[in-house]
């Protein structure tokens, strides 16, 4: 990236995502409190935690769907919500936010596909409208992405004609189309019938194995987390309660809260 690189502290490399002192509350309901989180480039971080622990909110903050009340977010060394002027951090303009946000993509629990467009149109929209690519070329790339997620036969189908698992794979292809460096996955299998979960996880595995994309995943699929995550982060009450390699956190959690949570999740 051509952006000026601010100092990144002790790690030496610029984190793909760097959050500092994030606060977020709705009225009295504090969702995130003074949260710090770094994700290294290419790292795959799985976030777990009870509902209301703030794990989804942290993804939404990184995607600018929720503005934090306080704190800073950097994406690949560039401030997301701030601009540096005369060495001071000022609230960022919409233009600046858009420029930084282009490095981030997100897949939602409920797909949020555009129902009035076919699968291929859903995927080609952002490359054409955001990146200004040639429509025919974008279409070809969209078809390749559909092939990657195993849906090339459904290119001209609208979301209403697809099953939940197919929709989610189209949604993943759509968010990959602009080639974001950081991908956020918010409980992407939670709304699916159990027998459709496997296909979607297969696609996520492919992305993870590629190794180029930084991934932050919120999920309840612990087997999948153990398999693909470099790091497992346990959230509780808007903070990181515990983190570490998935095998260690899953089989030998330090915190009682984590033990209780894992027992509840793994029970079914």
């Amino acid at each position: 990236m051509s952006a000026p690189e601010p100092t990144t502290g002790d790690t030496g490399t610029t984190p793909a995502v760097r959050m500092r002192g994030i606060d977020k509350a709705w009225g009295d309901n504090v969702v995130l409190r003074d949260l710090d989180l770094d994700v290294a480039p290419g790292e795959r971080v799985v976030i777990i935690g009870p509902s209301g622990s703030g794990k989804t909110t942290i993804l939404r903050v990184a995607m600018t769907l929720e503005r934090p009340d306080d704190g800073t977010v950097e994406i690949n060394g560039r401030h997301l919500y701030h601009e540096e002027k005369n060495g001071k951090l000022k609230p960022a303009s919409e233009k600046h936010i858009r420029s930084v946000r282009s490095d981030v993509g997100m897949v939602f629990q409920h797909f949020n596909l555009f129902p009035h467009m076919s699968a291929v149109e859903n995927i080609a929209l952002a490359p054409v409208k955001v990146q200004g690519r040639d429509p025919e070329q974008a279409r070809q790339q969209a078809l390749e992405l559909l092939e990657m997620v195993g849906l090339e036969k459904h290119a001209n189908h609208t979301p209403g004609q697809l099953s939940g698992g197919q929709k989610q794979r189209v949604a993943i292809a759509r968010s990959l189309a602009t080639d974001p460096k950081v991908m956020l996955f918010d409980e992407v299998t939670s709304a699916l019938d159990p027998e459709l979960v496997g296909d979607v996880l297969e696609v996520l595995r492919d992305i993870a194995e590629d190794g180029k994309t930084t991934m932050m995943l919120v999920t309840h699929e612990m087997g999948f987390a153990r398999e693909v995550a470099d790091r497992l982060v346990m959230f509780d009450h808007g903070r990181v309660l515990e983190e570490g390699p998935p095998a260690q956190v899953l089989s030998d959690p330090k915190e009682q809260r984590t033990k209780d949570f894992l027992r509840a999740v793994l029970a079914h």
Partner: peptide
């Protein structure tokens, strides 16, 4: 939100 995530 999808439009924001796609940076439209």
């Amino acid at each position: 939100e999808a439009a924001t995530a796609l940076n439209l």
